[in-house]
Nucleic acid binder design. Structure first.
Lengths: 209, 209
DNA sequence: TGTACATCAGTGAACGCGCGTTCACTGATGTAC
DNA sequence: TGTACATCAGTGAACGCGCGTTCACTGATGTAC
């Protein structure tokens, strides 16, 4: 797991230690969990002295922020990909499933992302105006498939509800309580789709109904 | 904040140190946040030596479990109370609002509850069969107000969806992104109700529609 | 009621540990002339 | 092209800290006779 290199292969100057530190952090995170993510452990994993990271990050929090940021980017790109693989209203469910799968496959990274968000009491600011962000994608997809873009407030509430629902499911999907439901429904994916479809993740087919 | 007593008022034998430790933990938790919750800090807060807790809890995790358990009980009782203060289908939303408000008012306790759950990859076992538990209350309320109790699977999915949605909202409700939505809707409570009503927290009025 | 004694529930000192951060340093790099 | 020198990006040792847990201990309590 360790990235420490033999003396000849690693020059004194690293080249891109910042990148290497974020990578090391992610490796550590998934291997050992969030509680193992100390600055010293990251430096160790990157094969560098405990003081080296301070040339690239002001403190531990700044390193964590960089890791979280990368998490949001990866989530965004995975959701974008999921969207292209579905059509019509299925796209919304596909986004939800992609979201939950990201959390399932990167549990520790997901945790770091929300820990950072909670510290700031806000999702990253880019989420609100960057078209490639996960949050805007949900909103846009709703508009593309029937939501009325002039009903600003309704649209925001629906996005918020979908986002909360996906997050809640992401945190719970692994719980044993749902094992038999997964089995009955024929696997994890049908389970995720079924729960998501019970939440506001579909736009209402007819507005009036 | 500290519970340390003067020499004469605190006898050598405490009386109910177990209780006092859990109380001290909760005090600390809300005052300093989850990261301040060390065994030593709890003992300090309870006015007792660092070794004393070991007569009542096998280790730190067991103390945390006791704190989490109390959290679930309080949540259950607050939801029960909320249910009686509403009627009809509003009861479900009332349960959701009570849930989110509990999380908002006891953020650190809420965190400890879910940290413990995540460690075990399950909600506390009591939740599934204890009628007073928060989870069963949601399910029961759905049945009382129109959900078909013979459609076991549908009912479980709806409960799961409601639970996930409420949890997601609980974790996000404090984010600044929602500030303007709260303002537009006229406060936090209307905001919570609006988001909850966008999720599967209402049983469908007519099954067919 | 009084005494001997086992048990219980505390104390306080100590253990080893890993942490975040700072510091004076040094080797490598790049630029000016 | 060569040299002087400033700057950069590392090193490694040290700081003080709080942690979970263990240990031998002791004071208080309760029970048997």
């Amino acid at each position: 797991m360790s990235e420490a290199k033999s003396a000849e292969s690693r020059p004194y100057h690293h080249g891109d230690l910042r990148r290497a530190l974020v990578d090391a952090a992610r490796r550590l995170l998934e291997a050992e969990g969030p509680s193992a993510l100390s600055l010293r452990a990251v430096a160790r994993e990157a094969g560098v002295s405990p003081a080296a990271p301070y040339h690239h990050f002001k403190d531990k929090a700044e390193l964590l922020d960089a890791v979280a940021k990368e998490g949001w980017e990866i989530l965004g790109s995975q959701m974008a990909e999921a969207k292209t693989s579905a059509a019509g209203m299925q796209q919304l469910t596909a986004l939800g499933v992609a979201y939950v799968c990201f959390a399932r496959d990167n549990p520790a990274l997901y945790r770091v992302m929300y820990d950072a968000a909670r510290d700031k009491e806000a999702l990253p600011a880019e989420m609100q105006d960057n078209k490639a962000s996960a949050y805007c994608m949900v909103r846009d997809t709703m508009v593309e498939h029937g939501a009325d873009p002039t009903e600003e407030q309704h649209l925001e509430l629906a996005s918020a509800a979908a986002w909360c629902g996906a997050h809640g499911l992401a945190e719970m999907a692994g719980f044993k309580q749902f094992d038999h439901l997964k089995a009955e429904l024929g696997g994890e994916r049908p389970f995720l789709e079924a729960v998501l479809s019970h939440m506001g993740l579909f736009p209402k087919p007819h507005h009036g109904c």
